[in-house]
């Protein structure tokens, strides 16, 4: 770990316009600093800025940036009205990590691409312009959608996949004032500038995540992995689905493990609306989802796996 200057903020405003790396739970940043993947000159600790409340927001919910993942997953309102979010959080990491990890920190966590995670390889995300060693290397858990020659890394999280399906928004304070970004637009694809994971600009701080009014229907977060905890998703599906008279009346979906961001594709839900559930329908939805999918060799299996996982989740959500 390189030496750095440390300061502690007591209100969020101190972080606005700061050029320091913001330290919340530290479960990802500190690991990366030890590996010297991250080498910030200044670290601003925002843990005491008070952004740790969950509040009603009309019919929705406003979850402070520093609410811990554990607290969010345990919140009675979240469990009752947005169970998808609680499921996704609990599918990730370990209890110890979830106790420390924060909502905003989780959104900003970085890829676990093994070439990004070590400094003796070429990685456009870690060192822009150096190349991508994952393309011809160990890439079993890399992206099949929206990737580029510059970067085939995936966004590793679960929570953001659920938030994408739930149409959440990210509240950001910037030097020019407050702005909100739809979660689906928050993470980027690697096109051109692989080192930028999301749309946060220098000097900005996430202050909250907001959830719109609860949606009725079954909520399912399904995460596929070879061991049943403490592993990143090979593929995950977040689904909110409501049936009416034997037909699919509403569906919201997002996918993890497939791309540089929680993957959403409005065509998938559109194909399902008004239809009677059937294996053929699920296949048609998967055809749309995966029409542009491209494997790298080791991760080719994600294409059939995503198809089958989507079928499993849709079957589960639509059965009597």
């Amino acid at each position: 770990m390189r030496a750095f200057d440390y300061a502690r903020a007591t209100e969020a405003a101190e972080a606005v316009g700061s050029d320091a790396r913001l330290l919340a739970g530290g479960t990802n940043l500190l690991d990366l600093m030890k590996l010297e993947v991250e080498t910030p000159a200044r670290v601003l600790d925002i843990n005491r800025t008070g952004l740790d409340r969950i509040e009603a927001d009309g019919e929705g919910l406003r979850i402070g940036a520093l609410v811990s993942n554990s607290a969010c997953a345990a919140d009675a309102r979240v469990r009752a009205d947005w169970p998808l979010l609680a499921q996704a959080i609990l599918a990730g990491a370990s209890p110890q990590l979830r106790n420390k990890a924060t909502m905003a920190g989780n959104l900003c966590q970085r890829t676990r691409c093994q070439y990004f995670m070590r400094t003796d390889t070429r990685c456009n995300k870690r060192e822009p312009g150096s190349g991508c060693d994952a393309l011809e290397g160990v890439n079993r858990n890399h992206a099949i959608l929206g990737a580029s020659e510059a970067c085939i890394a995936t966004y590793p999280g679960d929570m953001a996949v659920a938030l994408a399906a739930l149409d959440a928004w990210v509240e950001i304070d910037s030097p020019s004032g407050r702005r909100s970004v739809a979660l689906r637009e928050f993470h980027r694809l690697p096109n051109g500038i692989a080192h930028r994971d999301n749309v946060l600009e220098p000097g900005e701080i996430i202050t909250a995540i907001t959830l719109p009014a609860p949606v009725r229907g079954r909520q399912i977060y399904r995460k596929v992995r070879e061991r049943s905890s403490y592993a990143f998703a090979l593929v995950s599906v977040a689904l909110v689905l409501r049936m009416d008279a034997g037909r699919i009346a509403a569906a919201q979906l997002a996918f993890g493990g497939l791309a540089h961001k929680p993957w959403t594709d409005s065509r998938v839900a559109e194909a399902l609306l008004g239809q009677k559930p059937s294996p053929a329908l699920f296949d048609k939805a998967a055809d749309l989802l995966l029409s542009g999918a491209q494997g790298q060799g080791e991760n080719d299996f994600k294409i059939p796996l995503a198809r089958r996982t989507l079928a499993a989740v849709l079957h589960d959500a639509t059965k009597e």
Binding site: V138, S229, A231
Partner: peptide
């Protein structure tokens, strides 16, 4: 060796 830690080398967890 690319998976050189216990996050990436997957020994069974309690749930397994």
């Amino acid at each position: 060796l690319m998976n050189h830690d216990l996050a990436e080398y997957h020994i069974p967890v309690n749930r397994d």
